[in-house]
């Protein structure tokens, strides 16, 4: 009987988390449109509701009424599975993200022992969805976009993993709650100076690339590949890809906060939960800012950055933190 209650609790939590992701994705899309407008001296959405706030609802309702088109030559089964994989992989990331602390309870779905490893593993599942989605469309642009996207995402998974390991070394644990608690004295970004900071920078760059955002948005490059692996997707399937992508963006930012910026910790009067969201949305803002500031990389520059710069830097970082831990403690 106990098991059934737990399953019910898990299902309820899942619905809550999914709703949270959906709403925060809407907020991020709105923020992205407003901020990009602001940076380009435009106005952005403003007709639906005050300051265009209801635009999100209007968009959702519109998308729900769009027809799901499957190209004649596509592989129907794979074509419809791919967006589900991307969305669910993003959802699974959220299991290990601790949002804050109320009294003595940490607000987290489950504090899994191998938390950060779990996070990296689930994030790596996204590649499969994107690759097969691009292939199943049977469109040259889509396939090219899917292959490029996969090459890019796997390249940046290595630096991402290396900076996660820096954190694991400093905290001596893989559990996300343990990592936040190990930063009580000093955030990891400031520990083992300058290596903690470097690890943070590597993580941010790699997570921007993992979420296929500018300046790493070659797979979608609308001017060359007409949105790459997404070009044959319409209506709700397309939105599932978007949901996965923005969900991953928020998840990666939240993970960066958890691993480097002390998670929910912060000065007293502001509650921990609020601190967490302030920090995370600050990072999301930085990513949006970068998107509307920099042009796109070329694919050779992108791969060079990963393999010839971030990977060596990541390895040196690990050795540096190791030496620091041995010599200075």
């Amino acid at each position: 009987m106990n098991w059934l209650i737990e399953i019910g609790k898990a299902a309820a939590l899942c619905v809550v988390v999914f709703t949270f992701i959906a709403i925060s994705v809407m907020v991020m899309v709105y923020a992205e449109r407003k901020l990009s407008a602001w940076m380009q001296a435009r106005i952005g959405p403003r007709h639906v509701g005050p300051q265009g706030l209801l635009q999100l609802i209007a968009d959702t309702v519109k998308l729900l009424q769009k027809e799901n088109i499957v190209p004649r030559q596509a592989d129907y089964l794979v074509f419809s599975t791919a967006p589900l994989i991307v969305a669910v992989a993003a959802l699974l990331d959220y299991v290990v993200i601790p949002l804050g602390k109320v009294g003595d309870t940490v607000l987290i779905v489950r504090d899994i022992n191998i938390g950060v490893l779990y996070f990296a593993a689930m994030a790596s599942l996204t590649v499969i969805g994107i690759l097969t989605g691009g292939w199943a469309s049977n469109n040259k642009y889509s396939l090219l976009g899917g292959l490029r996207s996969a090459a890019q995402m796997v390249s940046y998974e290595i630096p991402l993993g290396l900076s996660i390991i820096c954190v694991a070394m400093l905290a001596s644990t893989l559990s996300t709650v343990g990592i936040v608690e190990a930063q009580r004295g000093r955030w990891f970004i400031f520990q083992a100076f300058p290596f903690g900071f470097f690890a943070f920078v590597v993580f941010i760059i790699a997570s921007t690339a993992e979420t296929n955002r500018v300046p790493f948005d070659l797979p979608e490059a609308e001017s060359e590949l007409i949105a790459g692996y997404q070009s044959e997707y319409t209506g709700m399937r397309f939105s599932l890809f978007q949901l996965g992508e923005y969900g991953e963006l928020f998840g990666m930012s939240a993970m960066a906060v958890v691993m480097f910026l002390g998670g929910w910790s912060g000065p007293r009067p502001v509650p921990p939960l609020l601190w967490f969201f302030i920090k995370t949305y600050a990072l999301v803002f930085v990513m949006i800012w970068v998107r509307w500031t920099y042009p796109r990389f070329r694919i050779d520059q992108l791969l060079n950055l990963s393999w010839k710069f971030l990977l060596p830097v990541g390895l040196v970082n690990i050795l540096g933190i190791g030496a620091w831990l041995i010599l200075l403690r």
Binding site: L117, A120, A121, M122, S124, L125, V127, V154, E157
Partner: peptide, 10 residues
């Protein structure tokens, strides 16, 4: 965890 990361992801 490694099984997911290596087999499913790589």
């Amino acid at each position: 965890g490694i099984q997911v990361l290596i087999y499913a992801g790589a």
